[in-house]
Design a protein around this nucleic acid. Structure first.
Lengths: 146, 146
DNA sequence: CTTGTAATGAGAACAGTTCTCGGTTACGGT
DNA sequence: ACCGTAACCGAGAACTGTTCTCATTACAAG
């Protein structure tokens, strides 16, 4: 799932730009996000990162988000979900299971992207918005819940 | 914003199917959702529906969602947002302001819908999902926040 | 090694949402 | 119209995901 050739170096740089260190804890969280390859919740991060206190997980993610390393994904369930920024993981969309709430990544197609961009421009101009990005989620049932 | 010819009748029917009544309070909330024409938060619902207690607003929305009359929209801000089900309001997408969090409705184009459906099918089948719908949100800045 | 500053961990605090419960209202049968 | 039953409502307590506080620890620079 690693798209960026030197992920940790890039992360370190972005943190350094804010005068923040790339510590063991932060590296572990980035490692977890990278390995997951899909948006994960705090409980998931905690269970796959031993000895990580909950408060540190939240704080670390806040720092990573501020540094542009991670971002929060709006999900349906009780917990928020987090993933690496697209500069690190590559642009993609999400498959959301409407039963269990799990979210998987799915690569975009150029044809789809073109249609999305076009729609964005047209729709936005009508209502005076400046469009900076988009979210496209497919909703359905995952193999397990089907 | 009313797409369905007999909205209140339809709502009453869906509630009746669950042996629930279409009371004044519920009618008022449906009226508010319909008039808003965009996903609204609980505070917004309360301020445009005088004498509605907060607890009733939450409970009413839970009932309406269970009856398939309303649905919860995943937003970025602190508060959840609610809108009428698409069977009542028509299929549409959202313009999300990344500054103030406001969400506006935007009508879909047939060209875009076709591209989305096609992409949905292809992408989902790869991962064993059954796709039942999609969400397409445009993120940007509204006229006020720009 | 010393020192200053950032980072950490545990728990308190906070906010949105849900639940509880007594009282009220509305529908269905007689 | 009356009554009984069940749904509904309002106020506030309770719950839960997230954020904040602060004393302590670890790190980088000199």
């Amino acid at each position: 799932m690693t798209v960026h050739p030197d992920m940790h170096g890039e992360v370190a740089g972005r943190l350094a730009a804010l005068e923040q260190r790339y510590t063991t804890t932060r590296r572990a969280v980035v490692e977890t996000l990278s390995r997951a390859g899909r948006p994960v919740t705090i409980p998931e991060i905690l269970s796959s990162t031993p000895l990580l206190p909950q408060s540190s997980a939240y704080r670390t993610l806040a720092v990573l988000i501020e540094a542009g390393v991670a971002r929060r994904v709006t999900g349906d369930g009780d917990h928020g979900r987090f993933e690496l920024a697209e500069e690190l993981s590559g642009h993609h969309h999400h498959l959301v299971c409407e039963v269990c709430g799990t979210v998987d990544d799915v690569p975009p197609s150029t044809r789809l992207e073109r249609a999305l961009d076009e729609a964005a421009r047209a729709a936005a101009e009508d209502q005076g918005y400046t469009v900076t990005g988009h979210r496209f989620d497919l909703v359905g049932r995952c193999p397990t819940c089907r």
